[in-house]
Nucleic acid binder design. Structure first.
Lengths: 136, 136
DNA sequence: CTTGACCTTCCCATCATGGGAAGGACTATA
DNA sequence: TATAGTCCTTCCCATGATGGGAAGGTCAAG
């Protein structure tokens, strides 16, 4: 199949498929005489794997490791689990950070009239803020 | 004061201060005869404002709007509040997305032995995954 | 007058993705 | 068979926010 079909079937855009090939994440497929890339069902599987990994927030480098583990039939499941759990902690940390920002901002907004009057505690807070971490 | 001191006092790196100037987020400061940038206390305030805005997850474009509202003494507080609350919703959405990824992955990891054996439900899931949104 | 810490501009890299141009290949239909 | 339309190819550029670093000018203290 051509790259377009592989893209549709895997959920990875043709653009990204070429990119993944260029950085060595996936192996270059065969080519027709006219240089068209030719993919097999197995390639689509790999692309779906990558897609799934990306959807779960793994970077391309992490995805590369996961692919290696996937292909290594003798890997220890502990290796995978460790990688996964480290990632879970990162995700949860980032989620908590975003939540903290939202909470702070929501709190500030609580005290803002939100009407035609100009005074606004949100901007007041911004203006009064001290440097986060400087001038120790 | 020089850019270095402005950076220390505001918590914004000198690199970023120059960048913010180049994209018109902040106004170009005066220069000495030797082309050194010269900042006043007011500029440090503005930089802190930007820093605070960034720390709360606003993009530079959003920060630009906030700065405009800040400087516009006749703005309605409702305008600020709307912007802020829209941002709160975005932040919470992103946080929820990350949390969902973490939960999914944590769930998969639960079923992974995490020992020397090779079989791993995490990779199995990745491999089996259907295209997220293609081929409707 | 030298040393070292500052400043200047300019270019490059990141990460993952998309846009689009210029040109070649294939397919269906008139 | 000619033509149109859709696919494919490679190549370059852009994003957003930030940092790294080079090459060179400036300033203050010794």
């Amino acid at each position: 199949m051509n790259i377009g079909e592989a893209a549709t079937r895997s959920g990875v855009s043709a653009k990204m498929i070429r990119y993944y090939e260029s950085i060595g994440l996936i192996t270059p497929p065969a080519r027709t005489a006219a240089q068209y890339r030719v993919y097999a069902d197995d390639d689509v599987h790999t692309l779906r794997f990558v897609r799934r990994s990306r959807d779960l927030g793994f970077s391309l480098e992490e995805t590369r490791e996961l692919l290696a583990l996937w292909r290594d039939k003798s890997r220890a499941s502990a290796d995978v689990k460790n990688l996964a759990m480290a990632h879970v902690r990162e995700l949860e940390e980032k989620a908590a950070e975003l939540k903290a920002m939202a909470d702070t901002l929501r709190h500030l907004a609580t005290h803002c009239h939100g009407d035609h009057r100009p005074d606004c505690p949100i901007l007041a807070d911004f203006a009064a803020s001290a440097p986060t971490q400087a001038k120790a």
